[in-house]
Design a protein around this nucleic acid. Sequence first.
DNA 1: GTCTTTCGGTTCAATATATGAACCTTAGCT
DNA 2: AGCTAAGGTTCATATATTGAACCGAAAGAC
Lengths: 260, 260
Amino acid sequence: MSTIGKALTLLDAISRLEKEAGLSDIARHCGLDKATARRFLVELEKHGFVEQDAETRRYRLGGAPVRLARIREARFPYLSVATPFARELASLAGETVHLSEYAAGRLSTVHVEDSQRAHRVIVDVGSILPFHATASGLGFLAFCPPKDIDAALSAPLKAFTDQTLTDPAALRQTLGETLRRGYSICHHGLESGVVSVAAPIRAPGSTPVGAIAIAAPATRADKETVEKMGRAAMAAARRISERLFGLEQLAADPLARRAG
Amino acid sequence: MSTIGKALTLLDAISRLEKEAGLSDIARHCGLDKATARRFLVELEKHGFVEQDAETRRYRLGGAPVRLARIREARFPYLSVATPFARELASLAGETVHLSEYAAGRLSTVHVEDSQRAHRVIVDVGSILPFHATASGLGFLAFCPPKDIDAALSAPLKAFTDQTLTDPAALRQTLGETLRRGYSICHHGLESGVVSVAAPIRAPGSTPVGAIAIAAPATRADKETVEKMGRAAMAAARRISERLFGLEQLAADPLARRAG
DNA sequence: GTCTTTCGGTTCAATATATGAACCTTAGCT
DNA sequence: AGCTAAGGTTCATATATTGAACCGAAAGAC
């Protein structure tokens, strides 16, 4: 792997840590030599991607990504367009709603609207959503071209719970149903006791850019409720997609179109 | 410079471009060989920091920073805390307000609240604010330790307008006045016809993390109005600082403390 | 239509850069 | 005191980076 790749992998690892970490910790966590990890950290710090606490000497995520994210958002306003719909959906469903975006081959959570209920599902911003074990992942993948599906299903599929689907054939069938239905359903895929539904956000005839999902405790997710939530998620996804990729916007600002 | 540094510099250059750019353009812009630029772009793309448009083959900023920024914001909620105050300040002053954050040795704009007036100052999200030629820069620098001031003033100081202060001695005096006054004033520093005021956002006794500024057309900025705006900016900065670095928060979440 | 230029992208020998075992110093623990 | 593990540094070695020259495609020029 190139040096750049290693450094960005280290940055990713830092972003995944619960809290700030020390040099040795980070090096171990990334399988890098301490000296190498240090050089990477120093370099990343120079550019504001990580910060070192002056007292504890521990490292944490820096402020540079904030600037980049604001620029990105100014050109492709995914969050600012989708967030209001997510909020509306959360209040309609009374359950936690999260938005994900596809980048670097993974679907990651970029926004969460918490349910107002005491008993609710918690989703962390920044968490990675496995394609095979989440409604977001399935809803995204189902609308991807076959080669992407093959790639995703040929990777090792971890069973997060004893009900996680890991058989590629079964998953393909699930994806087929999702495609026909327009939204995905995932029972206990990533965590036991959680049922979620999701629909892809996408330009017509193009690879999705992300997904919007509702996650509810299984005790509140009877068949009828799941269907209702699924249809609502699908409607929200369609409205977001129209806002992002609608003809006017597309003509006015070609930047709004994504690769793929 | 290390490979990582060069790659991050390239990323920075892309973020600075008005719109997506081709390979040769980018290479020229960064003084890199085309082959090198390409390898960097491919590597950055693998990690989602840039995207290549499938049709035009041009490159643009990717979605990965959005995830990192959301994580950063979840741990150090600079934007979500400061934005409401910025909005309030913008409506109070009736002028454009912008928030900046210090990262990678530079002060960059991370949020803008536009004035509602037709004749107003436009500030771009993501733009870099020179220390010597903006109210934000001066307001930030004035509250930094002497070594940071020395470093900032020993760099070449570009005259953006014929009224930009570029003499280190004169700037030191301005910084002294700013420190005593509590907010900075900048007349026509970056652009002619613009007057701005700013105050630093900071933990008590520590290096600032950013600044909040009001920018107004000079025609609306008589002495009295400038004073009023300056005091308002200072008050907003203080309230933001208290929210970010207040004792409770500090005790509850040491992550909220910044390096420096 | 043909010629020319420029584009995105690739190759491979030359070379600059990254690497990591061993090291130092400090801080906390037994 | 003595031990362990922390953050950080060094420098000969090994490896990844570099860029001139190259290719095919496409956009202009004439």
